[in-house]
Amino acid sequence: MSANKPEEHPSGRRRFLQKSLSLIPLAAAASTGVVSLTSPAAEKTQGVVQDYVPAYFNDKEWKFLLAALERLIPSDANGPGAVSEGVPVYIDKQMELPYGYGRLWYMQAPFAEAAPEMGYQSHLVPRDTYRVGIKLTDDYCQQKFQKDFYQLDASQQEAVLRDLEADHIRNEAIHGKLFFEQLLENAKEGYLADPIHGGNQTLASWKLIGFPGARADFIDTVQQPNKPYPLGPVSISSKRSV
C-alpha cells in the first residue's frame, strides 16, 4: 500500500493526521483521498452525536466537549470533523471503561512531575481530568468573558485552547496543559479508531490517510510502491466507506 505524491502544501488536517500516525497504532498507512462534506454518509453522522445521551458527562460538560472538539478537528474541505464523526461519543464511552477509571495504570502515591517516558504521573484518572479540567476552563472563561467556553466564538475558543496548551490556565487541582493533552490525545484516538468504539463513523479519517482497515486482501498492494490502494477501508463490523 502506498500513497499518491504528497501535496506540495499539505492541509492542516493532513499534517495533523500525519503527526498522529506514530501515536495511534491502528493508523498505519498514508494516502490521499478527500471525503466530501456533502456526502450522504457525512450528513447521516450528524445524528450520531445529536441523538446520543452521554453516560458520564453532564449537560454543561457535554457542551464544552462538543465545542472543543469542533475546534481541534473541524469539518473542512478535506472531510467531516471530530463532532460529526462521533468523537465525543468515543470519549464518553471511554470514561465508563477501565481506561476512564485509570485501572490500566499504577495509581498509588507518591505522585510527582517526571519525564514522559516515566509514564503517567497525575493523581487524576482520565474521567476526573475531564471533570476538573472542564470546570477550570469554564471558570476561566467566566472570569475573562462572562461566558462558558461553548458560548464563545471560534477565535476566542481557539485562544483559550492555546492558553491551556501553554499551561497559562491552571489551579491547585489541575494544570491546563495536562487537561489539554488528555483532550487532544483522546480526540486523535477517537478520530482514527475503528467505528465500533464510537468515533470515525464514516471511516473518513481512514479514507483520508489510505488505511484499509480490517481488509485481508491488500498484501499484494503493499508490494506496489507509488500506487494508491484502490479500495476503500472496512471496519471490524464490516462497515464500509462511501
Rank of each mutant, 00 (worst) to 15 (best):
K93G: 11
H175Y: 04
Q121I: 08
Q157V: 09
I196N: 04
Y130R: 04
A115Q: 11
Y90V: 03
E158K: 11
Y140T: 12
I174V: 14
L208T: 02
N186G: 08
Q146T: 09
C141M: 13
A154T: 11
N171T: 11
L192Y: 02
Y130E: 04
H197G: 03
N186H: 08
E181F: 00
N171C: 12
Q182G: 03
P212V: 13
E113M: 07
W206E: 01
A166W: 02
L152T: 06
Y101Q: 13
D153P: 01
N200Q: 09
H197C: 03
Y120R: 15
K135I: 10
S155L: 07
E158A: 08
M95W: 07
A154G: 05
Y191C: 00
Q156F: 02
L136S: 07
T137D: 11
F179I: 14
V132S: 05
N171S: 12
K144V: 15
G213R: 00
R131C: 10
V125N: 10
D92R: 05
Q108D: 15
I209P: 01
F179H: 13
H175L: 13
V125D: 11
L192R: 00
R103D: 09
A204Y: 02
K207S: 01
L136K: 05
G199A: 06
T137Q: 07
N186D: 15
T129D: 03
L104D: 05
L104V: 05
F111T: 13
L161V: 08
L208Q: 04
Q157N: 07
Q121Y: 04
Q143K: 15
L136W: 01
L183P: 06
K177P: 06
Q121M: 11
E181C: 03
L192H: 01
N171R: 08
Q157M: 08
L164W: 02
P212R: 11
H123I: 13
Y150L: 00
E117M: 12
Y140Q: 13
L178K: 08
L152I: 08
K188H: 11
D92F: 07
R170V: 06
S205T: 15
S122F: 00
L192C: 09
L184I: 05
R127C: 10
L104T: 08
M118R: 15
L164S: 09
Q121F: 03
P195H: 03
G210S: 06
I209H: 00
E96R: 15
D163Y: 03
Q121A: 14
T202L: 00
N186P: 08
N186V: 07
A109M: 11
L192Q: 02
I174G: 03
N200K: 02
P195I: 02
